[in-house]
């Protein structure tokens, strides 16, 4: 079976000749959650943004349901079934909750009348807040809206950049439960996370990105062994130690 998202040998960066992601490969199957972990500055966000079409790709291939998408414009990717939730500023603050979702539906040619109630059912908190400006939502509600917005066009793949950042443990639990639900409906979920424990708890597999390359791609439970990740995150630490 071909994966919903298949990245191989990806090189990407902000300025020409300055690759931040340097030959990373990763696959996510439909219905699967894969956690992308790694130390600060490893290039996780850059990887996610490159796949979403926000950062220039220098070489390598990105396939969405078997179709090559490297170099495709971000707005076309969004309409073609790739949902992306940025880490910060991931809602349109001056628009209301409903307007955020209606806008996403309209540009993707999805019937809002049908789709919005489904999303409100998934995120009941949003249903209550639908007339409120997104800028005035709480952190948890805002994250829900960001997810819902990305889900509007029924994407095959959902990429989230640190959705747990800034949320209380209880809200993280709530959000990740939603992710499990979303994956169960057949969406391939790529979860970029710092919160390793929470991410591996819901992920099937974990991949570790260090200095722009994926060093390990293993079943989540193999990574949950104490000490394993530390060694993977900082491969030079032992060599540097006296």
């Amino acid at each position: 079976m071909s994966a919903a998202l298949e990245v191989s040998g990806l090189e990407a960066g902000y300025e020409p000749g300055l690759a931040i992601v340097r030959g990373a490969s990763l696959g996510v199957a439909a219905g699967e959650i894969v956690a992308l972990l790694g130390p600060n500055g490893a290039g996780k966000s850059t990887f996610a943004k490159a796949v979403a079409g926000l950062v220039p790709i220098f070489s390598g291939s990105v396939r969405l349901a078997g179709k090559e998408i490297a170099g495709t414009k971000a707005h076309l990717l969004a309409r073609a079934g790739l949902g992306f939730v940025p880490q910060t500023e991931n809602v349109f603050a001056p628009l209301t909750v409903a307007e955020n979702l209606e806008l996403a539906a309209a540009v993707a040619h999805v019937k809002a009348k049908q789709r919005l109630p489904e999303l409100y059912a998934l995120f009941p908190d949003l249903a209550k807040a639908r007339r409120i400006d997104a800028g005035r939502l709480s952190g948890g509600q805002r994250q829900m809206l960001a997810m819902a917005r990305a889900l509007v066009p029924n994407p095959r793949v959902l990429i989230l950049d640190e959705p747990s950042a800034g949320l209380s443990p209880k809200l993280v639990e709530h959000a990740f439960a939603k992710l499990t639900e979303i994956a169960a409906s057949g969406v391939a979920v790529l979860l970029v996370e710092q919160n390793v424990k929470a991410a591996l708890a819901i992920a099937a597999r974990g991949a570790v990105l260090v200095e722009g390359r994926v060093h390990v791609d293993a079943p989540a439970r193999d990574l949950q062994v104490p000490g394993v990740l530390e060694r993977l995150f900082f491969p030079h630490a032992e060599a540097a130690a006296p």
Binding site: A52, G53, L54, K73, A74, H75, L77, A78, R79, F84, P86, E89, N90, V91, F92, A93, P94, L95, E99, E102, L103, A104, A106, V107, A108, R149, A150, P153
Partner: peptide, 24 residues
Amino acid sequence: TTAGRAMRAVAHNPALARVTGIDV
């Protein structure tokens, strides 16, 4: 209108607008 909201969306955050599917 969708076009008008898209303008406000782009003004607020062009990158988010693009991943939402708006042709900036």
